[in-house]
């Protein structure tokens, strides 16, 4: 498992197992408007600006060239072969299990534990995108080493990078939540966990995820190693939703620094560049992630998805 695929295995995959009809509709329907990119030797997608008129021509290419990796643009262009005439772009969130700054395993690349933690994160993000931001056309893709969340609601597809960065901060919990409020007469200080709605609730959920998965040896900006260890030692309080007590244990003066540090970690839980880049190419669902021999695929039910059951190509099972 997670071993690279040989050229022969790639060839077998694209000729015997892969079928262009398995492409998700959101890709197939706009195939002719997307730029495609391919990596033929494992050194990155150097074969770019490719276009396909229809599924048949893509299918022929894949079967003949059986690329190391296949990508398609998140952008729709009038002239995709020249990357000209940008029309709109999917809104993307990229969670790579191997790059999670906080994960409970200590594997070198990816393992079932960190993949599952990436999936937990994705579930929370999808909840926020639906519940808070009211978005519906959301697709979760298992990328081979993590997950892509692809949003195609028309109202977000024309947004620029700056607004996308703002959505990213909200969805990832990557901004320090506001503590000071005023009702026009008096001012108040309230911690994120005492506000059960809006961004404060999002942040509390993300902070819970981080704190529950800390190993204790992580660096959190502006927070001492001792505080990190105290947080890990007392995280049962968070599990029981006793945030007030947790804050007291950390100390009321240190706690805001911990919150700030967590907001910075939250930003690193995703690859922010992918979200703000309007012309990114992204691994093509149904294609093979040859570095780890896993299939990049749309996840119909993220709650129950297990990549080790659903995304393993036949040739891996036959390796013995």
């Amino acid at each position: 498992m997670f071993e690279p695929a040989t050229p022969l295995e790639r060839k077998r995959y694209y000729r015997e197992e892969w079928n262009v009809r398995d492409l998700p509709d959101f890709i197939a329907d706009n195939l002719h408007m997307r730029e495609f990119g391919f990596d033929h030797n494992g050194r990155g997608p150097s074969d770019r600006y490719r276009t396909f008129r229809d599924e048949r021509s893509l299918s022929r290419f894949m079967r003949v060239r059986y690329p190391f990796a296949a990508y398609s643009s998140v952008a729709f262009y009038r002239e995709p072969g020249k990357r000209k005439g940008w029309q709109r772009s999917e809104l993307i969130f990229d969670v790579d299990a191997k790059d999670l700054p906080v994960r409970s395993c200590d594997c070198e690349g990816v393992c079932p534990t960190c993949l599952d933690e990436a999936r937990e994160l994705v579930l929370m993000m999808v909840d926020t995108l639906r519940g808070d931001l009211g978005l519906d056309d959301i697709h979760v893709i298992y990328s081979g080493r993590g997950y892509h969340v692809r949003v195609l609601d028309p109202e977000v597809m024309e947004l620029g990078s700056e607004v996308r960065a703002e959505i990213l901060r909200y969805t990832a919990g990557a901004r320090e939540p506001r503590r000071k409020f005023t009702d026009g007469v008096s001012s108040y200080e309230m911690e994120h966990f005492s506000i059960p709605l809006g961004y404060h609730r999002v942040f509390t959920e993300r902070a819970r995820h981080v704190l529950l998965h800390l190993r204790g040896d992580e660096d959190i900006e502006d927070v001492t190693a001792r505080t990190v260890k105290t947080a890990v030692r007392n995280r049962d309080l968070i599990l029981e939703d006793r945030w007030g007590e947790f804050r007291s244990v950390i100390g009321p003066r240190v706690y805001p620094r911990l919150v700030k540090g967590i907001s910075k970690i939250n930003m690193r839980m995703l690859d922010a560049k992918v979200t703000i880049d309007l012309k990114r190419i992204l691994r093509l669902p149904t294609s093979l992630h040859s570095k780890v021999s896993m299939i990049c695929m749309e996840v119909k039910n993220p709650e129950t998805f297990d990549p080790l059951k659903s995304a393993v190509p036949r040739f891996v099972e036959e390796r013995g």
Partner: peptide, 26 residues
């Protein structure tokens, strides 16, 4: 009002999405 209608304000930094109270896009 949906938050997407405030996209220009959010993009220019005049307003922060995290300062708004949102529910199902409203």
């Amino acid at each position: 009002l949906r938050w997407t209608e405030l996209a220009d304000l959010l993009g220019s930094g005049k307003l922060k999405l995290t300062d708004l109270i949102l529910n199902r896009g409203r």
